[in-house]
């Protein structure tokens, strides 16, 4: 049954990909990329990669579509008519061919002899219960065994966020006209009574769910990345219905900018704390001298919180940037 479902999802995926490439209506393309992400997330779930699916749903189907639509509200929906030229097609065909050729060298799907299953994975799977004592091995690998990689990813998010903010501005410049992305929709949304009532009830639960995902990541699917995105999505939802100024009163632009750096600092701080405890950087066992497993668990909670704060702040800051941009336009 599962192979059948996977095959159907792959067929849908192919159809959506072709349609995204062919359509000239960017709004339709944004909708279709949302479907594409949902399909990928479904496939990841079926492959039992629950944490990846979680991220794909939150980032791909959630925030990305949100940001694409925010961009569209600044640029307009129809795509410029394409110029017919064969050179790009050649480049794409060449790159695609090279990628297909590369897949020939990859191990077959589900091959137990694949390097991914032989290198360090068995160690991680065997040692996690003893070393850290948490059931979600993905979180253990991400936050403890591979803490350096995750720190690198977080710094990439920080750099990307700073880059976007430099491009669109942090959103507090420009006189506060009535045409702000937030307040304009505020007027229009005021008539949508159902939306307003439901959103007012739902937003606290979205934020609560984000906190659950944040602090339950060591036991179930989830963690800082997903939680940060869900938290930001809750704030953005509130901003889109009640006006961006309402959100800014709760979470000021300044606080968001501080949060972007604070999360990374917290991550590095946990690493430095383990250095001071006499262990290596990001070796959390030093955090609790009596019980190394407990120390590692604490360290994971600490760095996941850092990840969550930075991700949520970057997403919210980008939203503020877009809102301020359309206010000035």
């Amino acid at each position: 049954m599962i192979p059948l479902i996977s095959a159907a999802l792959f067929a849908f995926l192919l159809a959506v990909a072709v349609a995204v490439a062919r359509t000239r209506d960017l709004f339709a393309a944004a909708m279709l990329t949302g479907i594409f992400s949902l399909l990928s997330a479904g496939l990841f779930t079926l492959l039992d990669a629950v944490d990846v699916a979680f991220t794909e749903a939150a980032v791909g189907a959630g925030i990305s579509t949100l940001l694409i639509l925010g961009t569209l509200s600044l640029t307009g929906s129809p795509e410029a008519p394409p110029r017919r030229s064969w050179a790009p097609l050649g480049v794409v065909a060449l790159a695609g061919g090279a990628l297909l050729y590369a897949t020939l060298d990859m191990p077959a799907f589900g091959d137990p002899g694949a390097p991914a299953h032989l290198h360090v994975a068995p160690e991680y799977l065997a040692d996690t219960p003893e070393d850290i004592g948490i059931p979600n091995v993905v979180t253990a690998v991400l936050a403890s065994y591979r803490g350096y990689d995750t720190l690198g990813e977080l710094v990439v998010i920080l750099a990307a966020g700073v880059g976007v903010l430099l491009l669109v501005g942090s959103g507090d410049g420009g006189g506060g006209g009535e045409r702000a992305l937030g307040s304009e929709s505020h007027v229009r949304m005021r008539e949508k009574l159902v939306l307003r009532v439901v959103a007012r009830r739902l937003v606290p639960f979205v934020l609560l769910f984000a906190l659950y995902v944040q602090f339950h990541g060591d036991y179930g699917p989830g963690g800082g990345f997903q939680a940060g995105v869900v938290f930001a999505a809750g704030l953005i939802l509130y901003g889109m219905i009640f006006g961006v100024d309402e959100v800014r009163r709760v979470v000021g632009p300044r606080a968001v900018e501080v949060g972007i750096a604070a999360g990374v600092l917290l991550f590095i701080g946990v690493g430095v704390a383990s250095l001071l405890g006499g262990a290596n950087f990001l070796d959390y066992s030093a955090l609790d001298p009596h019980d190394p497993a407990h120390g590692r668990h604490l360290g994971i909670l600490g760095i996941e919180l850092g990840v969550g704060v930075t991700v949520a702040s970057v997403m919210t800051a980008i939203y503020y940037g877009f809102a301020g941009r359309s206010r000035r336009a």
Binding site: T45, A61, S73, S185, L202
Partner: peptide, 26 residues
């Protein structure tokens, strides 16, 4: 336990729906 995941999708879906109204408004 995949229900957890389904719950997230439902929440994201609600947020998206509102964005789409926004997109329409623009």
């Amino acid at each position: 336990e995949w229900l957890d995941l389904a719950l997230l999708y439902a929440l994201i879906g609600f947020v998206l729906r509102n964005t789409k109204y926004r997109g329409l408004g623009a």
